[in-house]
Amino acid sequence: MCLGIPGQVVEITDAASMMGMVDVSGVRRAVNLACVAGDGPLEEVIGHWVLVHVGFAMSRIDPEEAAATLKALEDLGEAMAEIEAIRGADRMMEGETP
């Protein structure tokens, strides 16, 4: 029930009732956008990625933060692989079989 699904807002269908269409994995769904609206016109949310729960967009996804998290985790993965490689090399130097 709490498992929202990411989708991209593609169209405003009824600004008065805050309804729009969200593309969720290629399927267009009518979604209430009231909770992700900004101060300006509702059209402003078109193109944004949102998390959809029970027919409502409940939060926007920040693409920059998403990219920064992935970058940090990729760097961590590389660092870990490097450490393992160094440890593997050390063991080889000590005469162990890898």
Binding site: A34, C35, V36, A37, L51, M58, S59, R60, I61, D62, P63, E65, A66, A68, T69
Partner: peptide, 16 residues
């Protein structure tokens, strides 16, 4: 979960 969560949360939803 910085891509979707902030310290203060969703003010519109909270007000509702």
């Amino acid at each position: 979960y910085v891509r979707a969560v902030t310290a203060e949360g969703n003010r519109i939803a909270q007000a509702l």
